[in-house]
Each structure stands twice: as C-alpha cells, then as structure tokens.
Design a binder for these strands. Sequence first.
RNA 1: GCCCGAGUGGCGGAACCGGUAUACGCGCACGACUUAAAAUCGUGUCUCGCAAGGGAUGUGGGUUCGAUUCCCACCUCGGGCACCA
Length: 964
Amino acid sequence: MKEYDHKKIEKKWQILWEKKGIYHAQNKSKKKKYYSLIEFPYPSGDGMHVGHIRSNTAMDIISRKRRMEGFNVLYPIGWDAFGLPTENYAIKTGKQPAVITKKNTDTFRRQLQSIGFSFDWSREINTTDPKYYKWTQWIFLQFLKKGLAYKAKMTINWCPKDKIGLANEEVINGCCERCGTTVEQREKEQWMLAITKYADRLYEDLDDVDYLPQIKLGQRNWIGKSEGAEIEFKISSPIPGMGEKVKVFTTRPDTIFGATYLVLAPEHQLVQKLKSQIPNWKEVEKYIEETKSKTEIDRKIEDKIKTGVELKGIKAINPATKEEISVWIADYVLSTYGTGAIMAVPAHDERDFAFAKKYNLEIKNVIEPIFVNNPKEDLHFVEREAIHAIVKHWTEEKYLALKWKKVDWLTFVTGGVESGENTKDAAIREIQEETGYQNIKLIKELPRSHSKFYHEPKKENRFAHFSNFYFQLINDEQKELSQEEKEIHELRWMTIEDLEKEMTIGGALRDLENLQGKEKFYLGNGIVTNSGRFDGQDSEKAKKEIVKFVGGKIKTTFKLRDWIFSRQRYWGEPIPVIHCEDCGMVPVPEKDLPVELPKVKNYQPTDSGESPLANIAKWVNVKCPKCKGKANRETDTMPNWAGSSWYYLRYTDPKNKKEFANKKNLKYWTPVDWYNGGNEHTTLHLLYSRFWHKFLYDLKLVPTNEPYMKRTSHGMILGGGGVKMSKSLGNVINPDDIVKTYGADTLRLYEMFMGPFNQSVAWSEEAIIGPRRFLERVWKIGKQVAEPDTFTQSLGPSLRSATPSQKHTGSAMSVSKLLNKTIKKVTEDIEEMRFNTAVSTMMILVNEMDKNEVSIKDFKKFLQILAPFAPHITEELWGVLGEKKTIHLSEWPKWDKNFIQDEEIKIAVQINGKVKAEIMILLDEDEESIKKKVFANETVLKQIAGKEIKKVFYVKNRLLNIVL
RNA sequence: GCCCGAGUGGCGGAACCGGUAUACGCGCACGACUUAAAAUCGUGUCUCGCAAGGGAUGUGGGUUCGAUUCCCACCUCGGGCACCA
C-alpha cells in the first residue's frame, strides 16, 4: 500500500480505537478532568447532515487536544429522540415511533462512527429509553413536590394543523414554528413550570460563566429584567369611600410629574368593576371585544398605530401632582406584563407620545437633556494623551452646548494620567488650555468601582492613580444667541445618543436639517424639571426619592413567563401524575417510575386537544396510588425540551438504576467545561437547562450552580449559493458519499477549513479537493521520511514523476523554524476556534516540507498537531514511523521560543504612508542604523530628492514611514 | 421599528490592540511529464498602464504620518426581538 487509500486505513483504526477504548473516560483518574459537550442530535430519518459534522469535529479537535495535553476527557454522545418529526412520520406510515427511532439512531451511529469522532460510546444515551426518561419523570416529580410544577388554565397558542399547543417561543410571527400555519388562541389546562421563580438568578449568574457575549445578551433579553417601581394611583369617585386604586409599573418614576393620563389593558379587571360609572360603556365594551378577537396577525398589520378608548367619567389622581388625569384603555398595554396598567408620560415615552398625539392629550416635559459625556472604553482613558483626546473630541460640542442651552455648567468626565502625576491638576490644566475657560471647579471624583470600567487590565500596573472626575465649567461669557444658535437650541428634544452620533467635530452644523425633522420626545436621562421640589436633580438619582414621595415600591419585573410544559401528543415523556376522583391529583410514586408509553395503533392527535394517549382505556384507567379507588392517568406528555434539559448529567453515570447519576461522578465531572452548539439553541435550550440545573442544585443533587462553564456556537453550513440545505431544493449533501470518495479525514479537514467557525458558510463541491490534496501530500512526505532510500523506487510510475527530482538540502533548519511557528499558531488557533487558519498554517508548512529535507522528529511533531483534525491518516503514519502507542494519547508538542523569531527580517519603507521599498534589517536593529540603510536605498533617494523631510516614523521591526 | 453580526479578487476566505491588503484553498491560463488523457509538478493570476506610476477592502465624510481595522452618516445582506411601560 503505497498511495494514500483512506478506505483501508480509516475503517481499520476506527475498529482498533474502539476495541482498545482509548476514548473512554475514566470516572476515577489522577489526571485532571475535562468535559466537552456537543448538543446531542435529533436522529431524523434523513440521516446526518454535514452541519452536525462541523460542530462535532470542532469539539472533537478540542477533546483530542485535551487528551494529548494530559486530561481525562469526557466527550459523550446520545440521542434527543422524542418529538414531532418522528411522531408525524409515525402517523403517516403507521410504524411505531420507537421502531423508527431505533432505525434512525442506528443510521446516525454508523455515520458518526465512520467519521472517527472520539466519543465515549460506552456512555451513549437516548431520551426515549424508559431507563432514561424514568429520571426525566423523576425530576418532574421533584418540581411538583416543590410546587414549581402546577396546572393552570391558559390561553395557549394552538396550531390547528399539528393539533398541538405551542409555547410562545415556538410561535414565529403568529405562525407555527414547524408548519407555518397561523396559530389560534385556545383556553386549556396546561402544566406549567415556574421558571420565573429563577428569573433573577438566571439573569445574574450569567456574570459567572464564559459564554460568547451575544449568547449572554440573548439570554438577558429573553429574561428581560427591568428595575422600576410599582406606584398606586387613586381613582376618584363621586361617592366618598368608594374610590378604587390602580397599580402601575414603571421604570421611569422620575417622570411621574409628566404622567398626564393613565392606560389600562383592555382585560384589566378594574375596567369591569368600574362599569357602572362609565357613561360610554358601550363604546368601551366594543373595544374590549375587538381586542379579544384580534389575532397576532391583525395586531401586526396594524403595526404601531395606537388605538384606545377613554373611560369617561373616570378620573385618576396623579400622586405626584395631585392633579386629575384621564383614564384610558388601549391594547398597546399588555395585561400580562407588569400590572397591566401604565402611567403615560408622553414627553418621555415613544408609545405614549404617539397615543397622546392621536388623542390630543397633554404632553408635559419633565426631563431636560444634558450633555453628559458618555466616555467609551475605546477612547483610551489612560495615559496623558487620553486627556488630550477627550478634550479634543468633546470640547467643541461641549462649548456649543454651553451656548445653546444657556446653562452655566456642564459635567465633564475625564481622567487617567501616568503614575506619579497629580491627576486632578493635570486634567484641570488641560481643560483650561483647550477650552479657554479659566473658571473650572472639580465637583466630584467618581468612586473607585466606577473607574474600573475604564481600566485596561493589561496596562493596569502602569497607572497608580487612576481617577475620573466631574468638572464644572463656569460659563462666564454668556452671549446673546444668534439665529443659527437659536435653531440649534431647538434640538433639545433629541436624545443624547442621537446627538453624540450626529455631532462629530466639524459636522455639527452641517447635518442640522436632518435632525430637526425628528419627533419630539426625549427618552434619556437628564435634569428633572416641572417637578416641584425635585427640579434640578439628576433624573437617575431622583428616582428613589420620587418613588418614596408618591408612596410607591421599588420593584423588578421580568419579561420571562412560566414555561408551558405539557403537549397533547404521544411521542414524549408521559407526565407521571394520576387523577383520582377522591384524592384529586396524585403524583405517581417514585417506585412506579417510569410511566412507560404504551404501544398504540393510532398516533393521530384528537381534535378535542387531548393526547392520543387518552384513547387507550387500558393505559388510562388505573388505581389511585393513595386510596386504590378509580383513577385516570394524566395523558399529556412533556415537551422535547425536557429530556435535553439534563442529559449532560446522565452522561456522567448513564447506566445508574438508583439515581439519575451518582453523586461522586457528578462531583467529578460537572460542570461541563466547554459546550458548543447551534445558534438556534442559545436562548431556550440553554435557559431551560440552566433552570433545571439550578433547581437540582437547590435540592443539593448537583454540585454546581451553573451547568456549563463555557458556551460557543457554530455557523450553519448552507447549500451552494448560500441557501439553506433542504430536501425540496435537492441540495442536501450526504456525508456518506463524501466519506466514500474523499475519506473522513478530508471531510473533517474541509469542514474546518471552509470558513470561520462561527459564521455560516456555503458548501462547495469543488473546494473539498484542496484538503484532499493536502493529505495526499502529507502521506507522500510521510512515506519519504520513513524510507528515504527505497521510497522513490517503490513508487508506482504515477507518483514517481510527481516527486521532485531534487530536494533542497541543508534547509532542515528553516523547516524546523517554520514547524515551531506552526505548532504555536495551531495550538493557539484551536483554543480560539480559528480552525480555518490553523489548517492553512499547516498547509503552508507541508508545502515547505515538500520542497525541503525533513527530519523524522520534526515530521512526527507535525503529525501530532494534525492528529486532532485528521485522526486516521496521522495514526497510520505515526505507526509507519515506528511508534507503537497511539498518537492520540501522545504528548502535545511544545514550540521552542528561540526558533520562532527570525534574526533577519524584511521591513517596509513608506513615503507619506505608501509603501515604496523593502529592506532587510536585523531583528531589533537600532533605529539609527536602519535609517542609514533606508537613506542609502535608491528608490527612496529618488522619491525624496529635493524634498524636505518633515518627520520619520519607525515602527519596530515593521516599517519606516518618511513624511515629506 | 429596535438590537446584534457581516460587506475584501472569478469563488470560500486571510490580515483587525491602526503599521507591507488579497495568506491558504478552489477555479482559470501557460509549461513539464505522457502516444494521449487524467493525476502530479512548476509558473502566473485585484485593476488601469508599454513603462514610470496610479487606483482598489459596500458608498460618502472624519480623525491620523499611516485606516480593511477607529468615529459619523447612508446602502445591502444575514440573524434575533417585535407595543415588555
């Protein structure tokens, strides 16, 4: 076997590895543990998608590297097999879901094994296995015990086609996520999980984990935490003592003096209570009816047009101003959020503003914007230059602001000078010089915690005194405003953010016309006005006191709702509950778990909205565990999110019959160190499993507060032309074909090489040949290195001609150097998931090795860094080179620092920023001697002839720029 | 509408704490080997220009000695959220 034949070596090694169990994780080990996780696949009938391979390969590379770094690695695999696709297929074909699942998982297993992933197959799990879902049901019972699982009458989203209740998150634009049918509203008893009880922890604990920023943001947005206040408004009544009260929730209590009317959600119960006092009740009732019949789609079409009806005869008292204000109902106020009622402040809220405009309600301004610098990290608030930079960037605008607004002081935030300097004096002097204002007073130094924000951690030690200050500039040169300035004055309604965007230096006046067209409401913070004794205060700081003043309560509200946990379908975990005529709802005793799914003939859901399980009398009719009387089983099943909410825990002890996992194993393996998965699961699945984990943590059943230490996500693989792969388009790539023609190693390498891991990339049938050629070259060099003498003769005629007649000799050193650089780059790139550049770096090395003499030692090191990417070919060549033990448990190579930097390097010579020449210099050569070289260069001399050199910039070991 | 992310050769993409734009791969062209083809190897491949020199990182501005990278506005594409007070 001389030529690279992937078919022979790949199968061989896959069998051998499994036989020796080299990828099996040990529950006890002297080594440090590492738990790497991928989302377990849903085994669909279509077989594996090339997208699965991308994610799996990435974590496989990381897992393999960790093993070589001496870790005891757990990289498990299983099947998330409950759910609709299988059930729908069962309905269509009449086959049993369990049978279909078995067939599909067999296919997936075979496919995954053919690609050489280093999964620990001994820990394979399946959510539809009664031995597994016994514990899903068990955990549910714990929720029930703690009162976190409950039944409630809910208007649910009902898909008339799938005949299934949908969670809010499964409704996309008012349509069913799966089939696209318009969703209806139905009232139904549903099982709920009280995830809202954990909302705050789910939000706050994100600080402690290493998720990609956008993932954290997604989680936070979904939870939707807002801190605000609940404030009571009295409803005035002609009959003394009959007055009602209404609570509103607001995040802006500081604007309460500007609350000029009150709006209730049409469903608000107070509306019905007040019925007798409302003279225009007919009109009101009509509006309520209209709202009820409105579907999500209708609301969408209406878009942002606000509608509402005034409750005539009803007035509320603004607790701040004590003035009477009108009361309205409008469907822009949601009954399900906050208290279902709001105080409307049209001057400082976009929706209230629109509503007030439409119905001609009073708009009362109570916040004046101020121009407070909102310094951003990127402005480099360090070093002396920082002050220059800030002042330079902001003074002009500040100065204008002073004139426009006729204010006599402004805040300035600045700070940060080198150690040993007096920061305050330096800052004040800078501002005096730059602004011309002499009358500057320091008002306030920000607390230490605040200044942390501006710190650059790497440079920390350089700045002993780092502070931020508010300065007061006294405007001692009040001028009359010119016409132009008066116009600018009108801008005060703009948000600070807008102003910051619009007013670049020198551009402030130019873009004026654009700005003046905008609507006049102001959302930002500022100075409180028109608010009695609070006038002049900073709005943010005034909040607390105003809440106190009106007798309100500080409150935090979340967008997150409780989780609708039941499905009226067959293919899910039965909810382990029995309904008894006498005892009511009785949990199935733990000893009777699992409640197994019965085999049925018909999986068609009932139109009544009940699960198909309801039709199986034999299964439904049971004795009550408590009184032994007549009772019925709960026929709802759990959603697919259930089994996947805790599967990573089961991997630590997959066969345990006594508990969901042994405590020792959990203690050793959790938390998951690195979890990679799709973007589509970064909100819900992650949130749900974090919730379950925290719940189990509270029961002291798991040792950590969070399940996953690190979470990353991969981009999708698209079909040619950048469209999604789908059966209907016929652009689905079958990995089996690729493995057959090119081999698993090539497929793995190609998927890593095709583009940045976190972005979606289009599959290219043509480009895959590149990685294949690369591996052929690796093979050829490997053979040459192994048998340098006999190699050329023993080759077939086709390969012999391919071998360069002469190898460059004496350049083993340069290959070694490049190898060391490559080891460094690959080592670092893998950690950052920059697999594409890791591969390209290895390609460069191989091209070089092909041209030059390579030592066995060097080649082996190269094989080791390639091994996680292409496990089969490297293992084979490793053996060919005389190694007896597997390459995959060998020690990850280190790079030699001394080898990495060249002694002689090429730098660019620029003239006015354009590259004109290149010269060779010694590493770290001193500037003077480089200049000598440069000014001896012909091209340079020609360019600078007769011109005056203004300045010369030298960037160490990089370039030299001559400014003329 | 709002919030993220991205726009670089024929194509996938590299470079981004501001410092030689187009690494690596695909494709294409020419050459070597071959009776021939495939495979392989070699050379070339942003663009205008004979050259000297220009011009190009979605568009237009700004900061800078120097910008694909930072700032502002706009355009296009992808993803998420959509009246959450």
